[in-house]
Design a protein around this nucleic acid. Structure first.
Length: 179
DNA sequence: CGGGTTTGACCCGCGC
DNA sequence: GCGCGGGTCAAACCCG
């Protein structure tokens, strides 16, 4: 794809602090995160992880002996970034495994997965319908392997990262309406 | 040729 | 119990 070399002015002062999804989306502006997300977040970041049915369309496996569902505490981090591109280069390698349009959202949501041995980190990218200039990036899990690229890339994102208080929405004045 | 991306279909969980 | 919504996987296609 294209490079997001569109360097935007840094957030003036204070370094961006990543907040958990529960606080980041205490109030969904566009209904991006349904009550389920909030409920899950309230449960200490519980992830509705499925048991990976190898069966490929056809006969549903009857595997439900042991625990029906593994409850793994996967840390989730959500933040909004302002960029012309949906995918930001954070230095890791991501592979898109799906795209689905969510309700209340004009733009479809993209699902990415980190390609690594033992790295099951997933990334979710959704562009706001009201503000196409804002992109919501949600990280799920943590990488257990160093970044192959320079941290410069990450700093680049930090510069573009815009964290908003849970009780405050970004002012439209700050939003630079492209198009 | 390989890797990565794209689109569709299928499945699960929850709500009503 | 059924329907809606969201999430994931698989196969096919495209690009490098």
């Amino acid at each position: 794809m294209e490079s997001h070399q569109a360097l935007l002015p840094s957030p003036s002062s204070s370094l961006p602090s990543i907040l958990s999804s529960s606080e980041a989306f205490s109030k969904d502006p566009d209904g991006l995160l349904p009550r389920k997300e909030l409920a899950v977040a309230a449960h200490a970041g519980e992830t509705p992880f499925r048991s990976h049915p190898e069966a490929s369309g056809g006969s549903p496996p009857s595997q439900k002996s042991e625990n029906k569902r593994e409850k793994k505490n996967i840390p989730r981090f959500a933040f909004q970034t302002r960029s012309v591109v949906d995918v930001l280069d954070d230095g890791y390698r991501w592979r898109k495994y799906g795209q689905k349009a969510v309700k209340n959202a004009k733009f479809p949501r993209s699902y990415f997965r980190c390609i690594h041995q033992g790295c099951i980190v997933k990334k979710q990218i959704q562009r706001l319908s009201t503000d196409e200039g804002l992109v919501v990036t949600t990280y799920e899990g943590v990488h257990n392997h160093p970044v192959e690229k320079s941290k410069e890339s990450f700093e680049n994102i930090l510069s573009q990262m815009q964290i908003y208080p849970s009780f405050g929405l970004p002012h439209k004045d700050s939003i630079i309406s492209d198009s």
